[in-house]
Simulated assay, not measured.
Amino acid sequence: MYFKGKKVLVAGGTGMIGIPLVEMLVEQGAQVRIASLDDPARSHPEAEFHHINLMPFENCLKMCQGMEFVFNLLGVKGSPAVTTTKPASFFVPTITLDTNLMEAARQAGAEGFLFTSSVGVYAPAEVFYEEDVWRTFPSPNDRFAGWAKRMGELQAEAYRVQYGWDRIAIVRPANVYGAYDNFDLENAMVVPSLIKRAMDGENPLTVWGDGSPQRDFIHARDVARGMILAAEKANCEPINLASGVGTSIQQLVHTIIDNLDHKPEVIWDTSKPSGDQKRIMDISRARAIGFEPQISLQDGIRQTMEWYGKHKSVVTSRYDVFA
Rank of each mutant, 00 (worst) to 15 (best):
S193T: 06
S43T: 11
R221I: 03
P192G: 11
N259E: 15
P213N: 07
A230K: 09
I168E: 15
T136W: 04
G66C: 07
A230T: 09
G109I: 01
S79Y: 10
D210R: 00
F49N: 11
D261V: 01
F57D: 01
G178K: 01
Y163Q: 10
G164H: 09
V26A: 08
E130F: 05
Q250V: 11
S79T: 10
D222L: 07
A47R: 01
L260R: 05
E58D: 15
R318P: 02
F115S: 14
A286I: 03
S118L: 13
V176D: 09
L114V: 07
S271H: 09
N141V: 05
V121K: 00
I168M: 14
G18I: 00
H44W: 00
H254Q: 15
S139V: 05
R172S: 09
Q65G: 02
Y163S: 11
R302A: 15
A35I: 05
N240H: 14
L97W: 03
L205R: 02
Y180V: 14
N72D: 15
V266I: 12
P40L: 08
F217D: 03
A179P: 15
M67H: 02
K196G: 01
G5M: 06
I239C: 03
G209Y: 11
R143C: 12
A174I: 14
G201F: 05
L194E: 08
V245F: 07
I168Y: 14
A158T: 13
A188R: 05
I95S: 12
G5V: 01
D299K: 15
T14R: 00
V314A: 06
Q294H: 11
N182A: 10
V191Q: 04
V190L: 08
L260G: 13
G211N: 10
S36R: 01
M281V: 10
L114D: 10
Q298T: 14
E103N: 12
F144D: 14
H311D: 08
P173S: 01
H311A: 06
L74N: 07
V223K: 13
G120T: 11
A323G: 07
Q277T: 13
D269W: 13
A174W: 03
S317N: 14
E27K: 15
K312L: 02
D98F: 03
G290H: 12
A288R: 14
S296K: 04
M281N: 10
E111C: 02
N141P: 00
V171A: 05
W134P: 00
A41W: 07
M16V: 12
K278R: 15
P93L: 00
R215Y: 12
N100Y: 08
I239S: 02
K4W: 02
A148Q: 02
A30K: 04
A125H: 00
G152D: 05
A323T: 08
A231E: 00
D210G: 11
E68D: 13
E292Y: 04
Y177I: 05
L9V: 02
I170D: 00
S43F: 07
I52P: 02
F128L: 14
K86V: 00
V253S: 10
P264E: 10
N72H: 11
Y319Q: 03
L185A: 02
G226P: 11
L205Y: 04
H311R: 10
P264D: 12
S271G: 15
S284C: 07
V207Y: 10
G246I: 06
M16D: 06
L97C: 05
P80N: 12
W268F: 13
T247I: 03
